[in-house]
Design a protein around this nucleic acid. Structure first.
Lengths: 335, 335
DNA sequence: AAAATAATTGCAAACGTTTGCATAAAGTTC
DNA sequence: GAACTTTATGCAAACGTTTGCAATTATTTT
């Protein structure tokens, strides 16, 4: 433990200059002669100095911190353990770091309802990235209306006064369904809750594909968890028998839950029932049969989210943007 | 957008009291009369006031923030997308929030090597939680030696001058192996890199179990990813044929990679090869056959981590602690 | 009722930066 | 070489809280 914590003034004394000079030098301000700048930076490194961010933030009114809120649907079982959401957070972390920004991880529980207040007025962060639209956009809208720099991972087609970055869920749903139809499926179940923004778009894509093929829709509405899917499919099978030959699942976790239910009953995949998921999480490739899925490009999306947030921080505006998706064809469907 | 950001002084003027009184009231300081406290708190809520944390942190020398560092093994493919590590982060987030602490998510890339400096001297956080020991404890030790409040998720048996919370990996490895032996396996492969602290303990547990059964060890050392496992097992099968009848995998992701390789070759699980993983991630239950695994109680561990960090923040000391584990018996092994 | 104690509140000085403005030094122009 | 521009640095005032101490008021004791 050091006997004393060095501050800017001490460093200045050591170097025989004023604190202003040291401050400017460390911030690479060209007002200071290059030579002096370098000398001071080295001195700082030598003495293991680091700026007090509290003081710096207070004075400069800037934090260099971005709050990331994982926005669960309250009332559902979707939890902080959802691997896809966490993956997105991981990617966002990387993208932020690359811009020298720090990531304050939060959730609706901690932040309450008034995000503008909790994060921005309190100078905890300069801007907000919301992961997931949830069912009720009220909190997001309130924050956006309060003028908070804000971006959302979700369905970009949702009308909004804030930028949303996300996959083209409609096309994703359509592609997946068309793929199942092309494989010969006639009765395709949509497994998921169309009330959720992103999933709703996937559902509409599903409907569109069915429509041009004159097939009939059949929805099994469940929470976004594998166990809900497992039980949902089980129940359906008990109630009506094998009344379907394809499943378009709203996520991979859901698809894998369904897959388990099918395999337990020795229903052949993809021969009896073909299956397509959504997200392309790591597990999709490792399951057996491996799971066909719609791949979301979370890395690209994360970079875009950060770019758009940065733009807002600099006073520019930013638009919603769709990230390309891709059908990954694996064994769970005939392709 | 509000025309003006309210500050403590404004609120004080509105209420006709001094800023000290408001400050104390909002911090629930019993010096202030209960009645006054309540009145001021309500006024604050009414006016949507929130404290400027930058100022507060500067003055009080306390941030209420904990930095969480995801400590990757540099050089391996283990990534920020590792579902188990992210799950731990999620649980830690919950545990911290419950104590009113905020979570600054970071990684070795952002923090550099001098964590004490980057997080503590800079007043970014009050303490550090490190997720994963990595192969080289130098950074952790340096921070601990600098007197930083610090706890680590890892193998609690590792000798250290900082508290480590984690599963009893030795017992876990032994249990899993004994379970395979009890199922009739004679040639059990250990799939994972024993050079990694936690995995090393699991390996020693594996050895101990083999030893009492007079069986022979066989290690396939790979990175902690499912694809490495997939390729590792494939290679082994190509080189030596089916020379084993059991696999003790160092993680579930690894086990699932191995499972895929086996299934592709129509090797029956668990009849030809029995398989046990480690972690009990969500996928273990959903895979087919479902994966027997050693369940790590991440929730309990997270609570402990936070408790021990809190203790240090209050000047007390804290010891390493082992969290109980549990064998979850599923279809991939004969039990 | 005066004195002593307890309960509330206010004053004012920090906390460690950043930054507008003034100043000093050096270089340029006529 | 005087007047002016350019370049490099320093002065001192913020930023918005928290907190030791003093001051005031209310309560109890003698």
């Amino acid at each position: 433990m050091n006997n004393k914590q060095l501050k800017l003034a001490d460093l200045a004394k050591l170097a025989g200059v004023s604190t202003s000079t040291v401050s400017r030098a460390l911030n690479d301000n060209p007002l200071i002669k290059k030579e002096t700048r370098d000398k001071l930076k080295q001195l700082a490194k030598q003495h293991n100095f680091s700026l007090n961010t509290a003081a710096s933030r207070l004075r400069s009114q800037k934090t260099n911190v971005v709050a990331v809120i994982i926005n669960f649907d309250s009332g559902t079982e979707q939890s902080i353990n959802d691997p896809f959401l966490l993956k997105v957070v991981g990617e966002i972390n990387l993208a932020l770091n690359k811009q020298g920004l720090e990531l304050l991880l939060s959730n609706s529980f901690m932040a309450g309802d008034d995000w503008a207040n909790y994060f921005i007025n309190s100078r905890r962060a300069d801007g907000i990235i919301v992961v997931g639209q949830g069912k009720d956009p009220a909190n997001i809208e309130a924050a956006a209306n309060a003028g908070v720099p804000l971006v959302v991972w979700g369905d970009p087609k949702t009308p909004s006064n804030y930028p949303i970055v996300g996959s083209d869920n409609f096309v994703g749903g359509r592609l997946a369904t068309e793929h199942l139809l092309a494989g010969g499926a006639k009765n395709i179940v949509f497994l998921g809750d169309p009330g959720h923004a992103e999933i709703g778009e996937r559902y509409r894509g599903y409907l569109a594909a069915l429509n041009t093929a004159n097939a009939i829709a059949h929805v099994v509405s469940i929470d976004i968890t594998s166990s809900a899917a497992y039980h949902g499919i089980n129940q359906l099978l008990v109630a009506k028998g094998l009344c379907f030959d394809g499943i378009m699942a709203c996520s991979d976790m859901v698809a894998l839950g369904a897959m388990k239910a099918l395999k337990e009953r020795y229903i052949s995949i993809p021969n009896d029932v073909a299956l397509v998921g959504f997200d392309d999480i790591a597990m999709a490739d490792v399951s057996h049969p491996s799971l066909s899925s719609i791949k979301q490009n979370t890395q690209r999306a994360s970079v875009l989210l950060v770019e758009k947030l940065l733009a807002q921080l600099q006073g520019q505006s930013a638009e919603s943007q769709v990230v390309e998706i891709e059908l990954i064809n694996r064994q769970s469907s005939k392709g």
